[in-house]
Design a protein around this nucleic acid. Structure first.
Lengths: 227, 227
DNA sequence: CGTCGCTATATCGGCCCGATATGATGGACC
DNA sequence: GGTCCATCATATCGGGCCGATATAGCGACG
């Protein structure tokens, strides 16, 4: 699971461990808050397997530092002259993905394996690396799994005798799954109609203020699935 | 995390491992789908710690494992038990919670520790074993955690450049957290108004008659171990 | 008569996490 | 100017959970 995230980030640039964690936390947010206790072993694992290789580049550009060109820049230059290591706190180990690593990434991304919420979220977050049919398959596979699990629970839910608290937890969880299914179905529908912007589209998706999520008026509360 | 679930179920009746898993899956549903690979080690752990004890027999007061000292003797006992229970199955090992186990359960339930979604759901599902102030504290603690995490993410979300898929995942996850917060606030409100007030402190659990677990029915006074 | 399916317990390897240690650097405080 | 703290950065360790697998008893199906 971590392997997928790491390789996905390294697909675009070489990074060191600390920065991988930062990007995962900042951009993927709540989905992937990875701990160092799993990150560094995962990197060592991937390196041993030949999916990534360490590059001793202390000179790669810091990805989140926009060139403001002001005092900090000059100070950085001075520090570089003195210590011959720009922005380097401690010795960093940057990693680069290998050819084999790219194949591993593709395999993990399309993997048929069981996906929990985390794994699926990660796969979908990297879905731009998938060919469109595989994207659709990923979405529909996940939807089928959720539908099945929800059906199982709905069967048992009617006969169980639970107190207020347990019932609230169960209901809330089930509603969450139903909401996930709804979300997946919207994604599937959007995926089926070719919209013009896709493939490389990082420039196309920038200005998308028409917002599907932020200010949605009312969510068609048709299904009152409380039994 | 599993310890809480196991002790919570054993608070009401003695059960064997397979049945614990069944009840967890059927009643708690999507929240707690526990695997055997963690359940049986957890039971062994709890037994070694003295929080539960094994009762052999599962429906009668069969003397617990007479230490004859010879393996053949114990095998004979097993064979005899098999003959007395001709209905299918394999030899089962039922567990009963101990007094120390009840204290452990109370400690885990009110535990200040960090709670992820699973742990919190489990705690809330057993919230009837908590005194009302602790219930409220549990809800508000969780709510505060979610609010904080959502705020962190909302800050980083505005500046990140993500493609359509990653953005959709992040938005959906954030909405899920917002929905959880909403749910918690409804629960907090419901908890604050005393309304019917059917269960101030003691009569919260109604169990059907015939429970042999109630060996000592005279639970006079407040059995609430304060944390 | 084999084998499938269900109940039931148990172990193993692997992954992930939280806690902790270590080390280097720079800014804040006084 | 020295001390303390925060941040960046890598790494290890113990422990918990999971999926896969092994074992075992028994009823039912064909």
């Amino acid at each position: 699971m971590l392997d997928l995230a790491i390789l996905g980030l390294l697909e675009e640039q070489e990074l060191h461990g600390y920065e991988i964690r930062r990007q995962l936390r900042d951009s993927l947010g709540l989905l992937a808050n990875v701990s160092f206790g799993s990150l560094y072993p995962a990197l060592a694992r991937l390196e041993a397997a030949g999916d990534v290789e360490a590059v001793d580049g202390a000179d790669e550009v810091a990805p989140t530092a926009p060139p403001t060109g002001s005092l900090s820049g000059e100070r950085a230059v001075l520090r570089a002259r003195r210590h011959s290591r720009p922005r380097g706190r401690r010795s960093r180990k940057a990693y680069r993905i290998t050819g084999q690593g790219r194949r591993t990434f593709a395999r993990l991304l399309a993997g048929d394996g069981a996906d929990d919420a985390r794994s699926f979220g990660l796969r979908l977050a990297f879905a731009r690396h998938l060919p469109p049919p595989a994207r659709l398959a990923l979405l529909e596979r996940r939807r089928a799994q959720l539908v099945e699990r929800l059906a199982e629970v709905d069967g048992a839910r009617s006969e169980a005798t639970l107190d207020v608290y347990a019932r609230s937890v169960v209901e809330h969880t089930a509603e969450g799954v139903a909401r996930d299914i709804h979300w997946l179905e919207r994604l599937i529908e959007a995926e089926r109609k070719p919209d013009g912007q896709r493939a490389a589209g990082r420039a196309a998706s920038r200005r998308e203020s028409g917002g599907r999520v932020a200010g949605r008026p009312a969510m068609a509360g048709k299904g009152n699935e409380r039994n």
